[in-house]
Amino acid sequence: MAVPLIVSGVSKSFTMHLRGGVRIPVVDAVHFSIEAGQCAVLSGPSGVGKSSILKMLYGNYAVDVGQILIRHNGTLLDLAQAEPRQVMAVRRDTIGYVSQFLRAVPRVSALDVAAEPLVQRGTDSDTARRRAADLFARLNLPEKLWELPPATFSGGEQQRVNIARGFITDHPILLLDEPTASLDAANRAVVVAMIGEKKADGVALLGIFHDADLREAVADRIIDVTGFAPKKAA
C-alpha cells in the first residue's frame, strides 16, 4: 500500500472539432507516483496542465494514452481504461477530491453537502452530520451558516464547506485543487494541520497550491509539471 497511485506515460490533448479539428496538446508522457502518508505537490506556471492532471486522476478528463494505476478495494485498476461505473466506485471508496470551487446545490444545507460523501458510503446521516459539524467548527465556519444552503456563501465560506466535504471521508488518496485560495491565514493553518493528519493516517495526497508558504508547509515532494510539457512538434 506504499504506492497507491502510479501515473505512467499519460498524455492528454483536446481536439477542438468546432475549430476545424485543431488538436491542442496539454501534457505528454506524465510519469510519477505518490506514496501513502505523503503529500506531493504539482508545480509549474499557470496553464502548464496541473489541473488537467488532477482531473484525469479523478476521471473527469479522459486520457489519450497511458496508465493511471490505483489500488482500489484491494485490486489494481487502470483508471484510464476504467468503465464509468468503476470510476464512480473509485470516487466513492478510493479517491477524494477537493475542488477549487463548490458547485452549490440549491436548497441542500451546508452540513448535508459536507456530510454527503460519508452518507453515500453508508454512514448514518446523524453521525455524518456530526462529523461535518466538527470540521466546520474547526474551519471556523460560522455556525449560523451550517443549516443554510451554501449558494449564497462567500468564496471563502464555500471553500471551507468544500474542504470539509473532501476531508470528511477516509479515502486513501486525496486530490486537492487549490483548496486554500480564498482562505485567510488562520484557516490556511487549519488546512495545513488537517493535511498533516491525513498524512499521519497514511493518506496519499496530491495537490496544487499556488501559495508558496503553504506549499512549503505541506509538500513532501514537488512534481514539476513543466517536465511533462508537450513537445512543440506534437
Binding site: 483536446f14 477542438m16 468546432l18 475549430r19 491542442i24 496539454v26 501534457v27 496553464g47 502548464v48 496542465g49 496541473k50 489541473s51 488537467s52 482531473k55 479523478y58 473527469n60 461505473r85 464512480m88 466506485a89 470516487r91 466513492r92 477530491y97 477537493v98 475542488s99 477549487q100 470551487f101 463548490l102 458547485r103 446545490v105 453537502v113 454527503e116 460523501p117 453515500q120 458510503r121 453508508g122 468544500n162 466535504r165 473532501g166
Partner: peptide, 25 residues
C-alpha cells in the same frame, strides 16, 4: 484551467450524488 478553447471546462466534478454503496456490488 489549462485549455480554454471554445469548450467550457469551468464546472467542477465533485458534487453529483454518488452511487449508493450497496449497489456497486
Amino acid at each position: 484551467m489549462t485549455v480554454a478553447g471554445s469548450v467550457s471546462h469551468i464546472e467542477e466534478p465533485v458534487d453529483r450524488p454518488a452511487i449508493p454503496a450497496a449497489d456497486a456490488t
